[in-house]
Simulated scan of single mutants.
Amino acid sequence: MPYLMNCWYVAAWASEVSTGELFPRTLLDQKVVIYRDNEGVAHALLDRCPHRFVPLSSGSLCDGGRSIQCNYHGLQFNQSGQCVHNPHGDGKIPAAARVKTFPLVEKHNCLWIWMGDQDKADPALITDFSCMDREHFYVGEGYLYAKANYVLESDNILDLSHIEFLHPGTLGSDAVKDSVTEVKQDGDTVWSMRQTNNEILPDFLYQAWGIEHGKRVDRWIDVRWDAPANMLLISGATPTGQPRENGIETLIPHIFTPETAHSTHYWFGMSFPKAIGPHAQQLADEQVANLSVPFETEDLPMLEAQQDNMGDSDFWENKPVLLIGDAGAIRARRTLDKLIKAENAAT
């Protein structure tokens, strides 16, 4: 499957990778090993020894976390992928004894990896998720593994007309179908926005937002998409007829990185400003735990069934019937296709 290579993908929550441990993960069909040295700085290498091709992640860290030792024949590779120790014979290191490395940046509470041309890996290109910076926010962290293509996952977030039918007891209501929708694009950033007026929310949302049960509200769900599949969902509600600033709003990142053409790593979170007080960390963790239930028990089975039905066929080859709610997802798909085509043409 063609991927957009010259961009930043999330490889892990920063908290997933601990100092002194080797953390394997498959990203864009490539096996990668991530680790932190003794100073806590994270590094990423191809998870494959060039000698007999075994996973380096089955080895161990040595030299103060500055190198990985393969547990098959003892070769050691430093953070730049160069073999620095050969325990055999006269110890001469073969010129080809090196491992591919990947630029890795810790930012916005995530580890971001660049799988393309290393000389183009500019950290300034990382999508803005400053709402996940733990210096200013309490962040709840969620992770799911989906047996579905990552663009299908993006479609699901960009077209939230499904929440009335797939999540009737938690996130949707019978007013969603009457939402006012708008799609706009700023450069390669796509916005898919949905406004529902005079709505009675499901109990789940009244409780989550601390709104008086049964009170009619105007609800908005705005989704910002940046390639390849980095989304920020801005959701809130205000008493019907009142401006947004009189209501409550939550920021929910949804970030997808393909494992393979048919499987996806899914990170989602919840952020609350530290000004709210330290109890907000517990609130963020609880909200993520609550959201993971409909995500895991309703969204994932539907998307995995969709993937199973599509098999290896291309989305466009299936000639999908398009509805008004598809506008944002289709705009994002066409933007991603354009970026991949331009990248391939340049190389």
Rank of each mutant, 00 (worst) to 15 (best):
S292M: 11
R98C: 13
F268A: 05
A305K: 05
H279A: 13
D186E: 13
E212W: 00
G65R: 13
P228C: 10
T181M: 14
Y9A: 12
N38W: 00
G140E: 05
S154V: 09
D47G: 09
K120L: 14
K177C: 12
N344E: 12
L28R: 00
N230I: 08
L28N: 04
P50T: 01
T170Q: 04
C7A: 04
T170S: 08
P2R: 14
A229W: 02
R25N: 06
K274S: 08
L322N: 09
W225E: 02
D285C: 05
G65V: 11
S67G: 10
L28M: 07
L22K: 03
M193S: 07
S15F: 00
A305L: 06
G187T: 01
C7E: 00
R25T: 10
P320N: 05
G269H: 05
P123Y: 00
G172M: 14
P294H: 03
I200G: 03
S18Y: 05
P273R: 11
W13T: 04
Q69I: 12
M310A: 13
T181N: 13
H51W: 04
R334M: 15
R52S: 03
K184Y: 10
P24S: 07
G247V: 08
L171Q: 06
I248K: 15
D186G: 00
D90E: 07
G91Q: 11
N344Q: 15
Q281V: 01
G210W: 03
G169T: 04
D159N: 14
R194F: 04
E182K: 11
W112H: 06
E182T: 06
M115H: 04
N197G: 02
N198L: 00
P87W: 00
G214T: 08
C83W: 07
S15T: 06
Y138A: 06
F137S: 08
M193R: 09
F295P: 08
I163C: 12
G214Y: 01
